[in-house]
């Protein structure tokens, strides 16, 4: 396990450097001078030049990148061009909302995926199975933003059960934290939950037809014991793969959902920083996103080791 983690970390470090440089390059190539953007439409040429000097935008590309990289290594991601806040602090605050959303989404994914997947597998070929498959097919094809709007109109506007917008930090009030994240979590988890369900259903159906299941059944184990203690672990590897990949990807979907529910997460921060030409924040988000993806890929690999002893050798 330790070599795997070490190998992943060693791969991640140069990857962050290369990708951040490519992003830096792409931002530089995008038409539009951040100094002009920051100065406003009616600014004089002198003012634009002053901002350019203040932010070192006239320095060569490589100099600017190395300055940023040097700071990043020491944990200093620079300051926002727009608000002058420390990028690290901005990311930390936004990560709180996004991580909360992802956590709730992950729990919903696992719960929905397990319940529906097991239900479909143990009732393979029956009505319950068909209903689950049909439902999942619909959810897989449903755009999350559209579902989010439907949920808002029904549960927030028409019936006022959940709030339409807003976020409360977990540390402030856990109940209200959850209350604000139910609808966004449902919207974001619908599609991956359906994928997880279908994956689990297929794997579990196959496992339940194996000889050891018949033997266990002959030994008098109940259906719940067979599924819970034996079959599920054998069927978990493909399901965990889906779960890991989706949790890594979900940060992309969070951009839309956070906008619809006005959550102060990484999504709106990303949109604002791109529109405002806020280079340090864009780079910070890119690095954070890469670390996020690398972390979930690592966790997925580690879960393989746990679920599949053969992979440990």
């Amino acid at each position: 396990m330790v070599p795997l983690v070490a190998r992943r970390v060693l791969i991640t470090v140069p990857l962050v450097v290369v990708v951040s440089f490519l992003v830096f390059l792409m931002i530089d190539l995008v038409p539009g001078d951040p100094a002009v953007k920051l100065a406003g439409e009616n600014a004089s040429a002198e003012r634009i030049e002053a901002i350019r000097e203040q932010l070192h935008l006239a320095d060569p590309l490589l100099t600017r990148y190395l300055t940023w990289l040097g700071g990043s290594v020491t944990g200093d991601l620079g300051r926002s061009f727009v608000t002058n806040q420390e990028v690290g602090g901005l990311l930390w605050t936004a990560l709180g909302a996004t991580a909360s959303l992802v956590l709730v989404t992950a729990v919903l994914m696992v719960v929905i995926g397990l319940v529906l997947g097991i239900t479909a597998a143990v009732n393979h070929g029956r009505a319950a199975d068909r209903i689950v498959v049909a439902l999942c097919s619909v959810l897989v094809a449903t755009p999350s933003f559209w579902l989010a709007l439907l949920l808002v109109v029904f549960f927030a506007v028409d019936y006022a059960i959940f709030p339409a917008i807003g976020f409360v930090p977990l540390t402030e009030d856990p109940a209200r934290w959850l209350y604000h994240l139910v609808l966004p979590g449902l919207a974001l988890s619908a599609r991956p939950s359906a994928e997880l369900t279908l994956q689990l259903r297929a794997a579990l159906t196959e496992v339940l037809q194996r000889d050891f299941v018949t033997a266990a059944s002959a030994r008098g184990l109940t259906r719940a014991q067979i599924v819970g203690k034996h079959a599920l672990k054998n069927a978990a590897v493909p399901a965990v793969t889906v779960l890991g990949f989706r949790l890594a990807e979900i940060i992309g979907g969070a951009v839309v959902i956070e906008t619809v529910f006005s959550l102060p997460g990484l999504g709106p921060l990303m949109v604002q920083s791109v529109l405002g030409g806020d280079v340090p924040v864009i780079l910070g988000i890119v690095v954070l996103t890469m670390l996020w993806v690398a972390l979930f890929n690592l966790l997925t690999d580690l879960s393989y080791l746990y679920l599949n002893p053969k992979a440990r050798t």
């Binding site: 808002v152 109109v153 927030a156 506007v157 006022a160 709030p163 339409a164 917008i165 807003g166 906008t259 619809v260 529910f261 006005s262």
Partner: peptide
């Protein structure tokens, strides 16, 4: 988004 929040009383 704001209109939805207005209608829901937020």
């Amino acid at each position: 988004v704001g209109l939805n929040a207005l209608r829901s009383g937020q």
